[in-house]
Amino acid sequence: MKVRRGEMYAFLGPNGAGKTTAVRVLSTLTGFDEGSVVIDGHDIVKEPREAKAAIGVIQQHISLDKDLTVWENMMSHALYQQIPKAERRKRIDQLSEYIGLGEYYNYKVDNLSGGWKKRVAIVCALVHRPKLLFLDEPTVGLDIQARRGLWDLLRKLNDDGMTIFLTTHYIEEAESLCNRVSFIEKGRIIAEGPPGELARRIGAATVEYFGPDHKTQYRHFQTRAEADEFSKTLDETHTVTVRRTNLEDAFVEMTGNKIGDNGFMLGQSGKNGMGVKKKGGM
């Protein structure tokens, strides 16, 4: 697997697919038995310090020191990243101003909401100006406003040249943000490509229909004309929608997972044995 410089790349998969494990391996937190990981030309086993200097990581679970204030957390990171003393305050102030954190410097991290904690984590991850940013499920637990704010920030960072690797189980997030997406399941990449291209692999138009059996069904066609033709064969007991095939259709088709209307990703087999995997939390 290769992520190109300046790219925004996503691992898309249900819970338990191996997304977090992959990020932990790539960010040097978890060891591995086989293979190699090279970041910015540095093998993470042979040259771990050089590789680590090139990455910033925002983990799914906020990993800040909750006994410390916002400022102390950010300063600790600047120290760990060995940023020169004269630079530390300037960089933290710049990033905080952009994210709107300045007025919270003296707050204990534990007293902040999830969205603000995430912002502190972002400043910490960016303080050393990494070339590659890992984000593991970055928008889980964020409200819609905070989520969109984070998307804008990621687009800006990417426009400025930062390579971004994120994991998500929000289809919309991957489709809207990323140049390329991988579908991952049970630790394996089962498909990879630009979101539009992945969708086109299964068709150009999709007929979505809901009938008396109370089940929504999908049929994918190579042309819109074929989809229209099929839709005419369905009687008036069906509610029918003909639309462009999207990444969600490709994901369902290729992985066998299903996306429920209630916001949950329904897997083939869940880690919890119930076959129900959360698609996204608010």
Binding site: T28, D65, Y80, Q82, C124
Partner: peptide, 16 residues
Amino acid sequence: QRLYYRSFDEMMMCPL
């Protein structure tokens, strides 16, 4: 820091 805050992970990911 390791098991509850997980902030030890942050240190492990820094070039120290």
